[in-house]
Simulated assay, not measured.
Amino acid sequence: MDLSVQGLNLRNTVGPAETTRLARLAEDLGFRGWWASEHVVLPSPPPEDVPMNPLEPILDPLVHLSFVAAVTERLQLGTAIVILPQRNPVVLAKQVASLDHLSGGRFTLGVGAGYLEPEMTAVGVPMAERGARTDEYLDAMHALWTQPSPAFDGKFAKFANVDAHPKPAGQRIVVGGHSPAAYRRAVSRGHGWYGVAGGADDLRRSLDGLRKAADQVERPERLGRLRIHLVQSPTTPTRAEAEAYRELGVDELVLFPTHGSTPAEVAREMEEFSKLG
């Protein structure tokens, strides 16, 4: 089971010096990956069910990961997650290919459909369309990346007689979410599923959802086995919890440092977490 870290593009670790120091620490500790979160805007004042204060900083994940790519050599880089219906798929396909190219093929695009209506409204996306846009945008980007003469004719994305290079190196897609639609999307369009659990029972429920989805939708052979990427929240996993996840088939266990941690405290959390490998 690989170990990785998420969420260091927000709150107290957004500075260039802190980012450089922690990214190189992650590499030195043997972490596999570094995942960046996304919110373009947050509702203000925040509702009770929103985990972030709109006054807390959060960097664009692709810009942040470009910086991390430049100061590391081995870390796998990923978004956990980009809120896909809020992005233009043609522009995002170019950004993904560019980041993958400059990082030496280290980038994984993690996507989700989003859940904050004020954020969707601010970028001009109807909340009711977010699932359909997510599916269609994934298909449109796949066409741009893989077709010799890319063309796509959908409700939300249309293009023909265009091309874009460089192509990403076998672009990997991870799908986040805990709804039946998200599970179906992960099975039908993702190389992996990215989820959050409070413990092993939460994970079992998600795995059951993924198994049900596998009976409902076809999984293309090109995607291979569905990898499981998991964050335990709100607490850092103990060794016993990590072993339970390993036995349940988790491929990558991801640390999300404690809310409010200083860079020094995050470094200590990373060092303790690395002992679970």
Rank of each mutant, 00 (worst) to 15 (best):
L102R: 00
V71M: 02
L207P: 06
F156N: 05
M1H: 08
F159V: 15
L255Q: 10
G30P: 12
S274A: 15
V82K: 04
T19C: 09
L22R: 11
V174F: 13
L75E: 00
R172D: 07
E119W: 06
T238L: 06
M141D: 07
P257I: 07
Q232I: 05
V231W: 00
A181M: 09
A122N: 08
G170R: 13
S274L: 12
P46Y: 07
G104H: 08
V187F: 10
L25G: 06
L42D: 07
D60Q: 05
T19D: 01
L77S: 05
S98H: 04
S206Q: 13
D28T: 10
P168R: 07
R189H: 13
R74W: 00
G260C: 04
H229R: 03
H178D: 09
A36Y: 10
F152Y: 14
A200D: 12
I173L: 02
P263N: 11
P150I: 12
V125D: 03
G33R: 13
D215M: 09
W35E: 14
L10H: 14
A122F: 08
P47G: 12
A169Q: 04
T262R: 08
A128E: 15
M270G: 12
E18M: 03
A214H: 02
Q171I: 09
L223D: 10
W34H: 15
A23Y: 04
A17G: 07
A151V: 12
Q147H: 09
S44F: 06
G209I: 03
T235K: 14
P148F: 15
T13Y: 12
G176D: 07
D2G: 13
F67H: 15
L102K: 01
P89S: 05
G15A: 12
T13C: 14
L116N: 05
A122S: 15
L65D: 11
V40Q: 00
L226H: 04
G124Q: 04
H191V: 08
D60M: 13
D163E: 07
W145E: 13
V91D: 10
V174A: 09
G104L: 02
G15I: 12
L144V: 14
P220F: 09
P89L: 02
E265V: 14
A113V: 10
S149H: 11
V217P: 00
G192M: 06
E27R: 14
P237E: 11
G170P: 00
F152A: 14
G198F: 00
Q76D: 04
E265H: 05
L203W: 10
R189F: 05
D135E: 09
G177C: 08
L144N: 13
V123R: 03
E18K: 04
R11Y: 10
D251V: 01
V5Q: 13
A240G: 14
G104K: 00
V111T: 08
K158N: 14
L207C: 06
A17N: 02
E243M: 11
I83T: 15
E247S: 12
H101L: 07
R87Y: 09
L25A: 11
H165G: 08
A240K: 14
D2T: 15
L248M: 09
R133T: 10
A264F: 04
T134G: 01
A36R: 11
V254T: 06
P43S: 03
V40M: 00
Y194V: 03
F256T: 05
T72D: 01
Q216F: 00
P168E: 04
E269V: 13
L210A: 01
P168K: 02
L29W: 12
R219D: 11
R185N: 10
E271W: 05
A164S: 06
R87Q: 10
G110W: 00
K155Y: 02
P148K: 15
V5W: 10
